[in-house]
Amino acid sequence: MLEKEPSVCEEKTYNELFRKYYQPATKYIYYKCGNLEQAEDIVQNVFIKIWKLCDTIIYSKAKSYIYSACNNSFLNEVAHKKVVLKHQKAAKDNTNYESPDYLIEVDEFRIQLKQAISDLNVKEREVFLLSRIENKTYKEIAEITGLTIKAIERRMSKALKELREKLGAHIKL
């Protein structure tokens, strides 16, 4: 006996899906295109489509539908911009260096880091940010992007190597 799934046409179910997936999906698209407005637009259009086609969408498949629909709409839009990241999380205060020079260097390094991430190839960047900022496991990222875990490991490695190449000179240890 199959358990009956909730209908996506139910407003309650729809809202639940929206609240659950809107933010991560928008961030995912943002990490690809670097334009928040565009990302929100893409994801909102996907959710509008879900509302219209609600009776054809199976609740348990909604997540993968949302991500793949967002990705497809993203691929149909050309403009890719640089990702702008923020330093919001308080820096871990585990440093022993308190000289002003060091702080300036840290600030400088962080700016460079953001720039370098932003300059990464889209393929590496989306995976890297989903993992490092959104704390998603490789399994979850595989689900979202449709990549294999192996491919994700490769992209993560490549991203990290590229960042080191660009930033190595700035790192004084």
Partner: peptide, 27 residues
């Protein structure tokens, strides 16, 4: 050490702020 620093610092970054409820209203 360089990889570790890059990784540690990367994890301090955060993505954009997104107002989910406003987006829901809009949709």
């Amino acid at each position: 050490k360089q990889f570790k620093l890059i990784n540690d610092e990367s994890q301090l970054l955060s993505g954009p702020d997104i107002n989910v409820e406003a987006a829901l209203q809009n949709v």
